[in-house]
Design a protein around this nucleic acid. Structure first.
Lengths: 181, 181
DNA sequence: CAAGGTACCGGATAGTCGATCCGTTTCCTG
DNA sequence: CAGGAAACGGATCGACTATCCGGTACCTTG
């Protein structure tokens, strides 16, 4: 059973309106701007998080593709740096991405699958870098993800200033050996 | 003119209730738990941020004292490390501290003075470290503050895991020379 | 193409929460 | 102890979230 045409149209309008929403998502406000009833919004997206996931899905795919590209890179150090640098850029360009990455439960199966694959490929990149000895050997995938989210946060509170500085500091810090200090 | 005794008692009760509040501060809820009327809370603290500042003042003093201790340290590298390590611990122990540190406007003159002094002393510590050549020479006081807030954030999203790891990474990264990579 | 069934739509409204305002109470001073 | 000022309490208003159901538009079947 394919969805009805008006349902598709409504969903599209809601997503468009949500994309142009400044700051916090408010479902009633989204409805007003989309020109649909409040009930329609709540039927398509029962919670704010469900809508957030839908908004972030495109960039989540891009993130996964980026990770694949990094994993294909022959130099393990360059692979990790690519993933971190471009990943941060992606997270900064899409304000809803971080919330989806850090959420412990996912509304849609599609997002769940994307996150799983992103995690697996990222783990492979981290592992390769560790085996090559180009990063601290106590670096884990989770630590890396939280670190990148922390850098994103630092850039945001700094009003966009210092992105490259923070990246350089963290990447250099990751290269250091824990006992060589 | 000294304040009335019932006003002092109310203020104390409100602060006590606010300290035991889990998560987000809600002035109506604070009033209920403090056993005072809503109006009383709003008279003492017109906004949530005013109450937040009052809660964080004690730890802000501790932060300033820490910075003074760091500035008195003869070794500039050790001074910076002390300030960052202990400062992070302070920020993690007090959930309202970061909001006060990052706020651009302050409700109370006392907090404003504390923040000013903390900023001055921190700038001195950063300057000394730069002149001694033990940190990147493009490190600024603002960048350091945002970086520490980013690390605090990373620890929080990680559920408390990885605090020392993140600190080691960032401190090591700060020591590196920008062009020596 | 008409008509019936169903999936979807819209928005009134109930419920929740933040913030204000003012009649009442408590405190301090002379 | 009396008068006045300062502080108190909570009813209430406005803003917002989320639900529910009568009405509408779509799609199918004959």
């Amino acid at each position: 059973m394919s969805p009805r045409s008006d349902a598709v149209r409504s969903r599209e309008r809601i997503l468009d309106a949500a994309r142009n929403e400044p700051g916090e998502l408010r479902l009633n406000e989204v409805a007003r701007r989309a020109g649909v009833g409040v009930g329609t919004v709540y039927r398509h997206f029962p919670t704010v998080h469900a809508l957030t996931e839908a908004l972030a899905t495109g960039d989540l795919e891009r993130y996964r593709d980026l990770a694949r590209r990094a994993a294909a890179e022959p130099d393990p150090a360059a692979a990790l740096e690519l993933l971190v640098r471009e990943g941060l850029a992606l997270q900064l360009s899409d304000g809803s991405l971080q919330a989806v990455l850090l959420a412990s439960e996912d509304a849609s199966a599609e997002v769940q699958a994307l996150k799983r694959e992103l995690g697996e490929v990222t783990a492979a990149v981290v592992d390769a870098a560790r085996r090559a000895g180009v990063v601290r050997d106590d670096l884990t995938m989770d630590a890396l993800r939280h670190l990148v989210c922390g850098v994103e946060y630092a850039v945001r509170v700094g009003g966009g200033e210092g992105r490259d500085f923070f990246l350089d500091v963290v990447l250099a810090g990751l290269r250091s050996r824990p006992l060589a200090e």
